[in-house]
Amino acid sequence: MQIYLPIAELSVNAFVILGMGGAVGFLSGMFGVGGGFLMTPLLIFSGIPSSVAVATEANQIVASSVSGAVAQWQRNNVDIKLGTVLLIGGIAGAILGVQIVKVLRELGQVDLIIALSYVTFLGTIGTLMLIESLNAIRKSRAGEPVAARKSGQHNWIHGLPFKMRFKRSKLYISAIPPLLLGAFVGLLAAIMGVGGGFVMVPAMIYLLRVPTNVVVGTSLFQIVFVTAVTTILHATQNQTVDAVLAMMLMVGGVIGAQFGVRVGQRLRGEQLRALLAILVLGVCARLAYNLVAMPGELYSIGPAFGGH
């Protein structure tokens, strides 16, 4: 069944889009990740303009993370104060990111920058994850205990000014690191169409030393609001949010995630992470190939800006 996407301005097969949403939803349910970093490249591979893919994916992440955020909220796993500080940074980052996308679109470089951002991020994170999970697998095979990270240590972050008390997280730290972290994740949301959990969660654990029980809830809280703001900003600044495409991805995504969670519970953590790392590196390689390989058509035509 063909469906015309009003903003992307092309006709797509509804079942293909639902299937893509379902497949990425399945993987994100299985691995416990947002899935934006898989969905956006997939949309780009299937011919959706990069800027539409990014903005629409931000919209979809609102749907895929809201239920998790509500569940965490009900279990009192959200540090609202820390979440708000992260969110203030996040909104600033999103405003900047959407403006960057707008300028890049006018310059005709938006596809390139989005692809380069993905190659950089997926390459780095995929490699780190692969090394970490392979080490973990090796250690568990050798019978060694997996070393837990030392906590409670003070690091450079404790020397910064503007200290705030975050009761729920039992932290007394400067507001600058969470603001900057929030801003960085907001920037990623706007430029790459990702929730940014893959940066937010490790940074909260290792950098801010937030207790693990509030990390996921607080990060989801921040993601819901930042992707919501990003969606509205992209809609007003770039008119690139395709609601029809987003709805199809949402439907496919939530169904896929339900099955993914069940499969994920049967697999072991480090094997799961190794699998995810390979997947991430695969997407990265595909994007990198597109940048390096001689394109079939050197010329491209696009709408003129400034007219409306």
Binding site: V62, A63, V70, A235, Q239, A243, V244, I255
Partner: peptide
């Protein structure tokens, strides 16, 4: 959808977010 997106972009964005929240909660 098209007219909404281009003539009232802010409200279109807000509507897209509300739809997403409802879809997530409904699921």
């Amino acid at each position: 959808v098209y007219t909404f997106a281009f003539e009232y972009p802010f409200f279109y964005g807000v509507a897209a977010v509300i739809l997403a929240v409802l879809a997530g909660l409904a699921a």
